[in-house]
Nucleic acid binder design. Structure first.
Lengths: 183, 183
DNA sequence: TGAGATATACTCACTGGGTGAGTATATCTC
DNA sequence: GAGATATACTCACCCAGTGAGTATATCTCA
């Protein structure tokens, strides 16, 4: 069940789509439009990729589509989220985000978006959790830094880069709280 | 020719492999080991992915492999870089890296690695170029910041995140010069 | 009035990044 | 003498992502 891919590159917008569908049934075209409008700076997803994901979600049983014929426009498939899909989404929303920069930029902000919509301080809790995770990640990287052989200059540089990025992410997280309060 | 993929996710270690092969012919197992040792913090590549790429490079004519039978160990395929492959590599090395954080962390550091090996100030020039590119990117993002509708809080947050990350990258670049001089 | 852009809605075939498991042998270690 | 580790590569698979194509309706502006 809920067999998450383990490798870090696997940041699929499928949960964003599930999240939109959790708010109510709709069709692929609309989902793509909403993704662009609300999270377009986070996800850069083509229309066809959107449909690809919907196809997969349907095959997995997270959503079901019903065909509606329209008089003159192309037929629509309206997707509904299933109980299984809803459970997967809730599960994902409660899963802490890793501390890679990419995970924060993409997965964390997406989670934050849906948590914020629900109100009641969920977003703030999410941020505080993430601050803790990033702090721990920083410590881990800092101790890893000492283990390099001197000839591995570029591995060291790579690690320093990640450290700087994580520190910046931490600053951003702390600023995030204020931004979300002020709107 | 040199049909680069256009989308940002496309950061293939193929050029790193070409770069190693440009230093001399060798086999897949050794290439994977070298990639891990010298750039393991930059590329997280499984063995099979390494072989996948070699297969593609051979199909494209950038490298050629010759089979060597060994008495008791598995056969080896020794790969040589072709003239076309060498040209592709040189081309890539001279191409400026984009200003996404990921591109810098991965592509830029890889370029820097090979430029540094050649000496004669190539690495320093690369860094100075990149500083300029990142500065321009920062300005572009800063002006994009003003164009958001007020309801697009999360797009704005996403953009702020990228801004912070780029500023940190700029600091890192400036530090880089010192690190490379001091070894 | 009529040409061209833009919106609606989806399909298809493809590339390429990435993984995990499997194969078979030799040597090192305890 | 058993079990880990190194050598060297193959295979089948998943999924992220793209670009082009299809077909119609409405809006825009000269």
């Amino acid at each position: 069940m809920a067999k998450h891919s383990t490798y870090v590159g696997a940041l699929s917008p499928e949960y964003a789509l599930l999240g939109f569908l959790e708010q109510g049934a709709t069709h692929g075209y609309d989902l793509h439009r909403r993704l662009l409008f609300h999270l377009g700076q986070i996800w850069h997803i083509s229309q066809s990729q959107c449909y690809n994901i919907l196809k997969r979600l349907e095959a997995q049983g997270d959503i079901v589509g019903e065909l509606y014929e329209q008089p003159r426009l192309p037929d629509r498939r309206i997707f509904h989220i299933t109980e299984q899909g809803r459970a997967r989404f809730e599960d994902w929303l409660a899963t802490p985000t890793g501390c890679s920069v990419r995970a924060i930029r993409v997965e964390f902000i997406t989670r934050l978006y849906f948590a914020h919509l629900r109100g009641s301080g969920e977003a703030e809790r999410l941020i505080q959790n993430q601050v803790e995770i990033v702090r721990q990640g920083l410590e881990r990287l800092q101790s890893a830094q000492k283990t390099f052989a001197p000839e591995q200059t570029f591995n060291r540089l790579g690690l320093e880069f990640r450290l700087q990025q994580l520190r910046a992410a931490l600053d951003w997280l702390q600023n995030c709280v204020k931004t979300l309060q002020g709107d």
